[in-house]
Simulated assay, not measured.
Amino acid sequence: MKIAFVGKGGSGKTTLASLFLRHLAAERPAPAVLALDADINQHLAAALGATDEQAKAIPTLGEHIPQLKEYLRGDNPRILSATDMIKTTPPGRGSRLVGVDDDNPLYRDYVREVEGIRVGVAGAFADDDLGVSCYHSKVGAVELLLNHMVDGPDEYAVVDMTAGADSFASGLFTRFDVTFLVCEPTVRSVGVYRQYLGYAADFGVKLAVVGNKVSDAEDLDFLREQVGADLLTWVGRSAHVRAAERGEIRPIDALEPENRAALRAMRELVDGVEKDWPTYQRQAVDFHLRYARAWGNRSGRDLADQVDPEFVPGPVTLFA
């Protein structure tokens, strides 16, 4: 399954993503887990327990997009070269697909292990990018990877997305089986939920709200009133989380039982979702054609030619 964590800045989405990842990694038998940090503020590795030095040592996917393209295009005859490939280029026959638990050159080169969890990062917005670059150029590396990722049972790719509704600037928001929107019991946080819900409505995005920083019954009543049936579960104020914010990463088994139960409810929802590979590929093609018309075709080549109309990804395609 591919899972996104979104929400207002400061809502705790990175914290919730890290707790969910650590919860998955602690399950027995342990599933295959891959963490991807696509937030403009790169804090997921630290939230998982990486030191500053360890976090800085993780290669950034956004700085190695040419290498990603060269590998993923494989011998797809519709993609003339790595430079011909754009971030939305969908896979086709001949493309190289990756799994969550693969041993492939991309993971070996650009993914590092943090406390037993493999982590890839899009890359932070650097000083050199100011005024001349867009963060979506870095996030495009994650979009490329997810477009070419075939995940099977008990495999979880968990992505910490950039705050707010910024992810709608690309088709990345359609790449997930479940999107967890982390929502504080505040008007501003609920506003982001409504904005996200409105944008996602026409694309079949499965959205579940996880309340965070819930202190009392009034907080919970507020969330229930504002988001209704979309409220899946909630996480209360947590000494475990506060310790993590001070840099003390405690074992996940030390998380408060009611908060651990929330993580179990989240996994239960994810595991109940059925994969729909034809829709997944159709949405990838749709956004590729939109992007090509808006920008990609400026090179003079019609990038609609990159679409393989007979190709649908899935486990059989990967292993074939």
Rank of each mutant, 00 (worst) to 15 (best):
L197I: 00
V182C: 12
M161N: 13
E113H: 02
L146E: 06
N76S: 09
D276F: 11
V187M: 13
T15L: 12
I3V: 15
N212P: 01
L44A: 03
F176A: 02
D219A: 06
S299D: 15
D39Y: 11
E256D: 09
A217P: 02
A126K: 14
L97N: 08
F5R: 01
L146I: 12
D37N: 12
P90C: 03
V307E: 07
V121S: 03
H136R: 09
Y280R: 14
L231Q: 07
G10Y: 07
E27W: 00
R282T: 12
P185I: 11
G94R: 10
D101C: 06
V111Y: 13
P313A: 08
L44W: 07
N76D: 15
F222H: 05
D109N: 15
E245A: 05
R293I: 00
D177P: 00
V192N: 03
E256Y: 09
V178F: 03
D202C: 03
R108S: 14
Q283T: 07
L231T: 10
L223F: 11
Y156A: 05
Q195N: 12
D84L: 01
L80M: 10
L269S: 02
N41P: 01
T83Q: 14
G7L: 06
N259E: 13
A25W: 02
A165R: 10
F20A: 10
N104P: 03
E155Q: 15
H288R: 04
A208G: 03
L289S: 08
R108E: 15
Q226M: 15
P90L: 02
R78W: 08
A45M: 11
L269I: 02
R298E: 14
L72E: 04
L36C: 02
A57L: 01
Y71S: 04
D37T: 04
M161W: 01
F168E: 11
V205N: 05
T279S: 15
L34A: 03
S133W: 00
L318G: 02
P251A: 05
R290F: 07
R28G: 09
P185Y: 08
A50R: 07
L80F: 07
M266N: 07
Y110R: 02
G123L: 04
V132N: 11
E245T: 03
V227I: 11
A320G: 14
Y193V: 09
A217Y: 05
L130G: 01
L144C: 01
I79E: 05
A157G: 10
S170F: 07
A47C: 14
R260G: 00
P91V: 10
A208H: 04
R264T: 13
S95N: 09
P257T: 05
P278E: 12
G12A: 11
P29Y: 04
G12H: 10
D177F: 00
